[in-house]
Nucleic acid binder design. Structure first.
Length: 142
DNA sequence: TCTGAGCGA
């Protein structure tokens, strides 16, 4: 099965959670319960970050796949603005937190368009940039 | 048209 091999490769490359178990032989990290600045999973929200998508997976396909587990309010595959091609990840917004949880349970690690995808809570988006508009031009006042 | 481990116009 070529599909299985590719899936295993994708899973090995992508699942940091699973690999950490393999590497922890007898070594106990200093931070046992609290990881201050580590990349931990974002807190539950209705918004999901979906990665591992096929480059050919479209927004509607993403919407369709995640709709099986709850009411999808919004879905988007992130594409490059200049080329228009998928960046291989996207976002799915559910109506409720429960649906979002079910969506993760139902789709994380599953196949979509031949690729193993990963679904997790999306981080809150990047804070809006400060306005910084120059209302004072050299000629504005005199 | 393509990229691959990534958080969006």
């Amino acid at each position: 099965m070529a599909l299985t091999l590719r899936a295993a490769a994708a899973a090995a490359a992508g699942s940091t959670r699973g690999l950490s178990r393999l590497f922890s032989t007898s070594f106990i990290p200093p931070m046992n319960s609290a990881t201050p600045s580590a990349r931990e999973q974002a807190e539950p929200s209705t918004n999901l970050f979906v990665s591992g998508l096929s480059k050919r997976t479209t927004t509607e396909k993403l919407h369709e796949a995640f709709s099986q587990f709850g009411e999808v309010v919004h879905a988007r595959v992130v594409t490059d603005r200049v080329s228009g091609y998928s960046k291989g990840f996207g976002f799915v917004k559910y109506a409720t937190l429960e649906d979002a949880a079910k969506g993760i349970e139902g789709m994380d690690g599953k196949f979509l368009e031949g690729w193993v995808i990963f679904a997790e809570y999306a981080r809150p988006r990047q804070p809006p940039p400060p306005p910084q508009n120059n209302m004072a031009s050299p000629y504005s006042r005199y």
